[in-house]
Simulated assay, not measured.
Amino acid sequence: MEQWLKDDERLDYLLAEELRIIQSPSVFSFSLDAVLLSRFVQVPRSKGKIVDLCSGNGVIPLFLSARTKAEIIGVELQPRLYDMATRSIQYNELQHQITMRLGDVKEAPATLGIEQYDAVTCNPPYFLAHELSEKNVSEHYAIARHELYLTLEEAVESASRLVKQGGKAAFVHRPGRLLDIVAAMRANRLEPKRIQFVYPKRGKEANTLLIEAIKDGKPDLKILPPLYVYEDNNEYTAEVRALLYGEGK
């Protein structure tokens, strides 16, 4: 086990997929948002090519590998996270399907190829650069959570350039940025087709937005049923337990 881990790292379970992922308390770990996006996006089951932007430690490519046989490429800017992702892929013996690329999302179309991918996923930084108020936050957390190196508009533009005509681009974000996402998508030939709002509990405001667009698609937006994360007793709902642990699948 030690051969796979460095410093303060640990191996966590992705239970529904029966996979393991390398994580560390000193860098940004994946959250429920990554699980939700990897389940929400529509991907080809067999042949095809997928790109995941802002891959972090590779969690979305790992989740997607359980849903598709397509080739998956993850793009990550931070060397530490890229290294962790690469080792997780090797640990799970998925290097034949998943490849990580170290680099800037804005440069991904030029390096990976324009309009060659069936689907693109992205869990981008949620907060504007000027919202960085935590003075002692680590660089890894700051880059993952704030638009220091990548804005929402830049992420959408890269996704559009990567995806084929008729291909899908899916994002997870905060509901407060819905209009920004829609405006950016439509400015980049991406027509929003599916939206789902995620709520911490019934009766609470939504705190997560899932949105999928089709390149050069016709206007026809579907609002999916709401997804609730917790019951009133603070236990996960049956839907979320199925996503996380595979219960009831």
Rank of each mutant, 00 (worst) to 15 (best):
D33P: 01
V43C: 04
L152D: 02
D83I: 03
Y149C: 04
K249D: 15
P79E: 07
G176K: 04
H146Y: 15
M84K: 10
T151S: 13
L128P: 00
I195S: 00
I73S: 11
V229E: 06
L15M: 13
E231A: 11
A238N: 12
I195E: 05
L94E: 03
V41D: 02
E115I: 03
K249I: 15
I72G: 10
L190K: 05
T99P: 04
A34C: 06
I214Q: 09
T68Y: 07
R241L: 07
F63Y: 12
L32E: 01
P109A: 09
I223G: 08
I143M: 08
V163I: 11
D33H: 03
I181M: 12
E71M: 13
P109C: 09
A155H: 04
L224C: 11
L53E: 07
E76A: 00
T151Q: 10
Y149I: 02
S24D: 03
I143Y: 08
P192D: 14
E139T: 14
Q196K: 15
H173Q: 07
M100Q: 08
L15N: 09
E157N: 10
D216F: 11
E247T: 14
E2V: 02
M84R: 09
K106R: 14
G74D: 06
A169R: 14
G248Q: 14
Q116G: 02
I21V: 13
H130S: 10
G74T: 03
A85M: 01
L178I: 10
E2I: 05
A155F: 06
K193I: 12
Y199P: 00
